[in-house]
Structures are given as C-alpha cells and as structure tokens.
C-alpha cells in the first residue's frame, strides 16, 4: 500500500477490500454480458430451428478456414493477455508492456480479418436490409442467417474494439510504471474481460461457420 498510495480510494478500508470489490464487480458485469449475448443466441437458435436447410446453405458464405485462423489469432491473444497479467503480478514493467502490445496487435489482426469477411459479404450481396440476393427459394430464410451473422459478429467486434481501447490505456499506464505487485487490479480485470470476449467467439465460430461442415 505504501508503494502506491494513489491507488486506494478513500471509501475503502484497504487495497484488499478495493480489489475484492473490483473483482466481484467485473464478474457480475460478465454475468450481465452472458445474458446480453444469450438473448441474441436464443434468437439465432429459434431461427435456425425454424429454417435448418437455409441456415446450412447460407453458412457456406462464411469460410471455415478464415474463421479458424481468426480463432487461432484470438486464442494466442488470450495467451499473451495471461502472460501480461502474470508480468503485472511480478511487477515486471518491460514484459508487461510487451505482452499488452502483442495482445493489442493480435486483437487488431482479428478485427482486420473480420472487416475483410464483412466486405466480402457486401460484395456477394448478402447484407439483409441493404443489398440482398440469395439463389433459390430459401432466400427469405437465409436472410435470417445473415441478420444473425451481422448482429452476433458485430456485437462481438464492438466488444473487441472496446477491449483494444482499454488495453491501450493499460499500455500507457504500464509504460509509466503504474502497476506494481501490490496494485495491478486493472490489468487482471481487463484480462478477465478479454478472455470473456474470446470465449464468446469460441461459441460464435461453430454456430456461424461450422453448421454444415460435416456433409
């Protein structure tokens, strides 16, 4: 505590209480996020249950290989994030800065690939409500696949953008040496958030890319 007195807010007894509160707060926030994504996943499940064939056909517009590469990128970013948390616990400034930077880069790679996939969808005229044409009688139902595709990946990408921004702030503060073995809660909690966003993608990838792969 004496190492970082600026870190303790005055309504807490000590840093331990402050850390307990912050950690519990982040976990509860992640619970609300589960419920938030849960709503759109239920909507997806219902639509796919009603139109299984159209969903299978429409899923061919999403390349499983690109999705797999992006999944690997995201899992690697989770590794670098975990290493960053570890470095912050030990108070190692340079490795912390390095791992945070690596996580940001990997996050940006994911977003760039996502942007490429989205633009591809625009070129193929499968953007419901904007420019949509789909061969065959199932066009109306396939539109529901793409609606959920954009809603779910868009929501996930938004969370990624927020995550990258948060990591950017952490990077600056880590550079200034603000995080010590006694006070590194922000790095830990941002790590929790980052892992959560990764896990969401682990669900989205099979739901959107792999539903017709076994045929």
């Amino acid at each position: 505590m004496s190492e970082a007195p600026y870190a303790l807010q005055e309504h807490f007894r000590d840093l331990e209480q402050q850390k307990d509160a912050a950690t519990l707060g982040m976990w509860i926030f992640l619970v609300t996020e589960v419920m938030f994504f849960g709503g759109v996943m239920l909507s997806y499940s219902t639509a796919r249950y009603l139109h299984p064939a159209a969903f299978a056909a429409a899923s061919h517009y999403s390349d499983p290989l690109i999705g797999a590469i992006n999944t690997a990128v995201l899992i690697c970013s989770s590794l670098t994030m975990a290493l960053a948390v570890h470095a912050s616990q030990l108070g190692e400034r340079k490795p912390l800065v390095g791992y945070l930077a690596a996580t940001i880069v990997l996050g940006c790679v994911f977003l760039a690939v996502k942007a490429y996939e989205w633009s591809h969808k625009f070129h193929e005229h499968v953007v419901p409500g904007y420019d949509f044409s789909f061969p065959g009688p199932e066009a109306r139902s396939a539109a529901l696949y793409f609606t959920h595709y954009f809603a779910m990946t868009g929501l996930h990408a938004l969370h990624m953008v927020i995550g990258v921004a948060v990591l950017g702030v952490l990077l600056v503060r880590a550079w200034k040496g603000r995080y010590t073995p006694a006070y590194h809660t922000p790095v830990e909690l941002s790590g929790l958030y980052w892992h959560f966003v990764d896990i969401v993608w682990i669900f989205l990838y099979p739901l959107l890319y792999l539903i017709d792969i076994h045929r």
């Binding site: 609300t32 419920m35 709503g39 759109v40 409500g129 904007y130």
Partner: peptide
Amino acid sequence: TPVIAITLALVGIERIFHLGI
C-alpha cells in the same frame, strides 16, 4: 435487464433495416 436490452435492440434493428427476426 441485459435481456430486454438485446431484445429491444433487435426490434430497433428490425425496424430500421426491415429485417425479419
């Protein structure tokens, strides 16, 4: 509350873009 948030968001999206959720 997160569930009503995403639900109303979907209604808004459906209305703006004329989608069929």
